[in-house]
Every structure is written in C-alpha cells, then in structure tokens.
Design a protein around this nucleic acid. Sequence first.
DNA 1: TGTAGCATGTAAGCCGTTACATGATTGA
DNA 2: TCAATCATGTAACGGCTTACATGCTACA
Lengths: 187, 187
Amino acid sequence: MNIMPWMASQAPTSVTGYALLGLLSLRGEMSGYALKKLADRTLRFFWVAPAMSHVYSELGRLARAGLVQQSVTRRGSRSLRRYSLSAKGELALRRWLADGEVEFPVLKHEVALRLFLGHVTGPERPRHLLDRYQAQLRKRSEDLAEIRRSLGDDPRFLYAAMVAEWGIRYYQEEQAAVTHISKRLGT
Amino acid sequence: MNIMPWMASQAPTSVTGYALLGLLSLRGEMSGYALKKLADRTLRFFWVAPAMSHVYSELGRLARAGLVQQSVTRRGSRSLRRYSLSAKGELALRRWLADGEVEFPVLKHEVALRLFLGHVTGPERPRHLLDRYQAQLRKRSEDLAEIRRSLGDDPRFLYAAMVAEWGIRYYQEEQAAVTHISKRLGT
DNA sequence: TGTAGCATGTAAGCCGTTACATGATTGA
DNA sequence: TCAATCATGTAACGGCTTACATGCTACA
C-alpha cells in the first residue's frame, strides 16, 4: 500500500553512499583517495572502512546520479578527479537524514562468537583471544583519542567529536568487560 | 609464500557457516527452521540474524561439503530435513576455532552515523533518533535478559550465558551513553 | 473453516571484497 | 635511484537480502 507512488523512486544510493556524501559535506572537495583516508578516520569506527575500489565505484554511481560533481584535470596519462557535493546531492542527503529508516545497530563480533562456542574448545582459546582483543582495544582507543584531540573544539566538528567520545567510552567499557570475562574464565 | 600448499584447501565455509555448525554442536539435530529461530535468540546479538533463505542455502552448502548430515523424511509432498553435525563437520569446526583468523569487531551503527552528520540536520533529528534508540535498547535488553534467564546455570550453556551477560552489560552502557549524549544535545 | 506457525525452497540482485593493473610525485 | 605515498581504475566473485512460490499441522 503505497500512497504517492510517483515518489516511490528507489533510494538514490546505499547507506555507505550517503555516508560518503556526508563526508563531502563535512570537508568539501577532495579526491577519491583522500575520501578513503577520511573514511578510515571516521566511518571506520561506527560504520565501515570501505575498500579503495568501493569508494571509486560508489563515487562513480553518485556522479551518474548527479549527487556529486567531478572536476577532472589531467596529470600525465591519468585523470585526477576531485569530487564535491552537488546541490542535488545535498538535497538527497538532507532528505535521507530527515526521512530515512534507521536500523538498529548490527555488531559483527567474532571474539564474542568464539567465546559463545567455548563449549567446543574449552576456556583456553577464548581467554587467549580475549587477551589479544584487549591489546587491540587499547590500540583502537588510542587511535580514536588522537582523532578526538585533532578535532579540537571546532564547532564544525562538534558532532564528529561527540561520536568520537561515544566510541572512546565504548572501548573503555569493552575493556572493562573483557577483563571481567577473562577473570571468570580463570587463570 | 605458502608452506604446505596441499593443505591450502580454501576454507570450507564462511564464518556464518561455522556459526551454524556451532549451533548444531550446542543443541544437536534440528530443522533449518528451528536453526533459524535459534540463531535469532543467539547469533542475532553478536553476529547476524541470517535470513531464512540464507540458512537453507548455507545448510545446502555445508551438506555438500559433508560438514552436516541430513536425515530426510517425507511429509505429504514435501521433504522434512533434520540436520546434525557430522564427524567431519565437528573436526572442521574445532580446527577453525583453534586456527582461524579473528577480525576486530565491526559495528554498523546507523544512529551514530546520523549523529555524526548532525552538522547537516541540527540537533533535533539526532536527539529524536537517540530517544527511539533508547527505547529499542530497553526492549533488546529485556529480550536478552529473558534469554539469559532461560539458560539458567546449565553448564552446557555456560559460555552462551557469559556472552548474554556481556551483551546485557553492553546494552546497559549504551543506554547510559545515549542519555549522556542526549543531555549534551540540549532539550 | 480459517489462520498462525512450522517448513522448504528458487531467483534476482545489491553491497562490498580481493586480486590485479597502472602511473605520477615526493623525499630520503 | 629507490621506496613510499598519492592516485585511479577493472574483473571476478562471495555473502546475504528481498521477493516469490508452496505446502502441512494444530488449534481456536
């Protein structure tokens, strides 16, 4: 039962597409390569770290849909492209942010999966994996804290900063939880 | 540089395939349908809630690879299949748990994504989404707490119980974090 | 007698990955 | 001059989803 079928218009792009539009809206014109690096400092922590090739193919689709503009220059035999949000792209982004469905977060947690299957391996294996995970969490925490510092109190990055703080808090809690579970698994 | 190439044997299945083998190892013989329901009570919280059709196609592949056994009976014009872990499947599962690479967890958090893009919408929209998310978290928390209770202190489900407690703790912390962020966004 | 739940499957297609291929620029 | 980094792409394919198709069983 679709009331205004002429508006049905399949979504112009995937969530990751909108995320990339969002990055462009935050930082302005940049290359696909730069966009990928920015995604690795931002989206990576709460969405995905898209593969380089995926960023390019996604930008291609966004360009075909008119949501981003490309300014192409030449460098030797190759083209250098810089992408920026078009008026249409900004509208699409705003609309999606205002109306789009929001999924409950999905966690793909291989460490938890292996703990869950501890009845197959006994406690040694999950304990080892939790130790490694603990070390990775410390590293991630530091990376994110560094990113948070780099955002300063620039009002442009206020929301980015809030998300970073949320992430840091999450990693901290996760470290505490891991410590607790490790203890329960015995020495 | 692969030292024993004859062992290279591409992984018999995906992580989700191993997860299903794990469920079979935990609960024994069951139908694809039952497996899906079990996944919705377990894997759902830390891995995925696979679509019904995916469970069937995955079981088909596992059966072709000899990792699960099927006992097929007839009911009217349809076949009824019950799946259980084969000896080969159990070996594969153990081997994967012992040797497999473990990815750092991936979070696909649309609420965080929209908060991150708050510079486009202003604070109203993320605040609204955080409110809805808070309610969903409460519901999830209760669901998981109920599952935890149902596991009791049966030693067979010890690890499942630990993961459930980890999840409950995570949801609790997430609720606190959301409350904190909502406050920062103002009334 | 109707409907909710149990049960099994196929087809099309999207999202995203890895592997591969290539070239320009900067700085040690 | 070599390596690291910046930079752009194509091809093949895997994992998972939605939509579709179908039938049996229990029970209100």
